[in-house]
Design a protein around this nucleic acid. Sequence first.
DNA 1: TAGGTTTTCGACTCATAGGCGATAACCTCG
DNA 2: CGAGGTTATCGCCTATGAGTCGAAAACCTA
Lengths: 212, 212
Amino acid sequence: MFQVRDGELQALLWERARAPFSGCWSLPGGVLGEGETLEESILRHLETKVDVSEVAHLEQLGTWSEPERHPERWELATAYLGLVPVGIDPHVPADTRWHRVDELPPTAFDHGAIVLAGRERLRGKLSYSNVGFALAPPTFTLAELRDIYAAALGYDVSATNLKRVLVRRGVLEATGGRRTHGPSGGRPAEVFRFRSRSLEVTDQFAVFRPPS
Amino acid sequence: MFQVRDGELQALLWERARAPFSGCWSLPGGVLGEGETLEESILRHLETKVDVSEVAHLEQLGTWSEPERHPERWELATAYLGLVPVGIDPHVPADTRWHRVDELPPTAFDHGAIVLAGRERLRGKLSYSNVGFALAPPTFTLAELRDIYAAALGYDVSATNLKRVLVRRGVLEATGGRRTHGPSGGRPAEVFRFRSRSLEVTDQFAVFRPPS
DNA sequence: TAGGTTTTCGACTCATAGGCGATAACCTCG
DNA sequence: CGAGGTTATCGCCTATGAGTCGAAAACCTA
């Protein structure tokens, strides 16, 4: 589970009280039940940590199978990538905390590598899809969206260019409203929203394609 | 396993002799052994069908977990995408055949959907990576490479543009050799090869990025 | 109403992609 | 050996999308 918090990309982890990896931080999840779908299972285990209705996007990341990943048992793990919009502060249990992806604490198993794989997946999709909807609140100004993209991508982003690109692609649309920033004044910003709140991929990256 | 054969993208399938899905066509694979990596397992099962040293690229595609996918048992499947270069004609058992992905025969389980998911993954990566190396022979002319791309992508491709794009990206390089086409004459074509024969992703698709 | 602040717009440059005709370099056949 | 056919390649053009930057717009406070 990823969320942009305090201007940085953070991941939800819980601290293990028992061996193996006691004291290390671990991804939320658990054992797959018989006759259960992987996605059902993820949501079932997630419910013990957060309100799953706040998860705006969920997709399968991959399956890790190295036998050494677990010191005691032979156990595969299928990881999912989940995104929570900014502005939501889900209630989490005492052993569970958000951690900056850039400075992960010691992690259990291969969970550190899985988190980094999830970040790369997210970064790629931000460029060629509308996944941003799952990180952004329902409506937002361009400055706010720029900060979200910058946090997730890890580098500065120009608000001018971000708007042009996303509007041209039909990903963003103006709500018509305006919002003023704070006590310091400044021109009120236009308020935008994502046209769709389900994953859509930009087809423009199909290269070598003759314009039909 | 995909290969471009007779100018079309084809997938390797074997015909089931026993229930369930007797007479339907099935993906090569089998049950994961204890303490085995998924990739090791795939290669082990594949060895009974083809010479695995001819597989130029192998990557995990995803894990399918719907309980209804198997009529008798509860069974997950992790699928891999493998690519074999043109020109190789691996010896396969009697029950195993290549099938055009565009006209799949009746398939067992959800294997039809898995094949189509693999094709989409391949099509995407052809645009933003050098995966072509795994479909092309060691050296080739541009006309040959164009035909491979056209077969995999499903639409015509211009050789002029293909060369320009792949050379600019540093994916292709000329060997210096030339090759003449056949009895009908014509200017001899330049011979190319892929600069690298392992997967490399074009970074140009990271949009919103200021040129550092 | 002046000055500060933030947002937005427009003009420009740049890089990559795609189209098309011209030319190059081979063949075969008379 | 030259004419005509065939295939490959190159050069020039256009189109499109991305990135930069400065100017103007629209708010605030003093």
